[in-house]
Design a protein around this nucleic acid. Structure first.
Length: 277
DNA sequence: AACCGATCCAACCGCGTTTCA
DNA sequence: ATGAAACGCGGTTGGATCGGT
């Protein structure tokens, strides 16, 4: 389909916006709404293309935008949602009130991606890197990464199953709905409670527990970024054994498994590497 | 103080999707 | 039903800033 470039006309300004231009755009939209973006610049008296105006408004000038650094909670949420939704920045942004997709995309590309790499996790698949190019998931470097991989695997199974059953199967949306549903709500709540409980249990015992794996992630996984194996990669705790046994139960309903993993996922602890890595 | 590489982020670009005549 | 126009999204770029030497 042939289409004309949006900034075909010569004389249209590009590059950074001047404060005066911002003011004109804001004033115009406040008075008239944006209407047709294509015709807005002409009506507002701006030497910009409509696309540029739309971008400036949605990413910067909109009054309901929260600016400034992301909180740890927001970063955790972005990572979790990215695991579910992939690079669907708009969908992810919809779960973070007052943050823009562009901002989240930048956050991901500049910070979070690198942190996952640092942990030895592939930021695209959210799976641990295979050691020296070996098969994926052969030996996850930590309970945290292993758990993520289990979750991803179950997610894909459930996705396939839902597709089969024609249950409105764009599964990322299914999981998004799940995330937003009462189930998701209780999941988040449960994890908060769980992590609180774990924190206290960690203070009581230094043995390897589901929650105690955090230090292993931050200390052991980072040198593993290139995919080389470390002693940590052999460490399997009781929790993982439990996961293994539930996961190996092939006849189990996949979406139930996914839900169980969702409910099991110790977010608040395993994501706390964000504070250190 | 000057240079240089790394990092960050606002803005641009291209393409798929939706809308409408 | 068709195709052009408009919109919206994700990937990428380039200039500003920062930190190290």
């Amino acid at each position: 389909m042939g289409r004309t470039p949006c900034c075909e006309k010569k004389g249209l300004k590009k590059g950074p916006w001047a404060p005066e231009e911002d003011e004109i755009l804001v004033n115009y939209i406040k008075q008239h709404g944006h209407g047709s973006w294509r015709s807005l610049p002409k009506l507002a008296g701006l030497l910009r293309c409509g696309k540029s105006c739309r971008l400036r408004w949605t990413n910067y000038l909109r009054p309901d935008i929260k600016r400034g650094p992301f909180t740890i909670e927001e970063e955790k949420l972005v990572i979790q949602l990215h695991g579910i939704l992939g690079n669907r920045w708009v969908a992810i942004a919809a779960q973070l009130p007052r943050r823009t997709d562009n901002e989240i995309k930048n956050l991901w590309n500049t910070h979070l991606r690198k942190r996952l790499l640092c942990m030895g996790i592939d930021p695209q698949t959210h799976k641990p890197f295979p050691p020296c190019g070996g098969p994926i998931l052969a030996a996850p470097s930590s309970p945290a990464t292993r758990h993520m991989a289990q979750w991803e695997s179950a997610r894909l199974e459930a996705e396939a199953r839902l597709s089969k059953e024609s249950l409105q199967p764009n599964s990322p949306d299914y999981f998004l709905r799940l995330w937003n549903s009462e189930v998701g709500e209780s999941f988040r709540k449960l994890n908060n409670e769980h992590s609180t409980a774990c924190r206290s249990s960690i203070s009581q015992t230094s043995s390897s527990t589901k929650c105690g794996s955090v230090s292993a992630v931050t200390v052991d996984a980072c040198p593993n970024a290139a995919g080389s194996s470390t002693p940590a990669s052999n460490r399997i705790d009781e929790t993982e054994e439990q996961i293994d046994s539930s996961d190996s139960c092939c006849s189990e309903d996949s979406s139930d498994t996914a839900l169980q993993l969702l409910l099991d996922f110790p977010i608040n602890n395993d994501m706390s590497f964000l504070e250190n890595c």
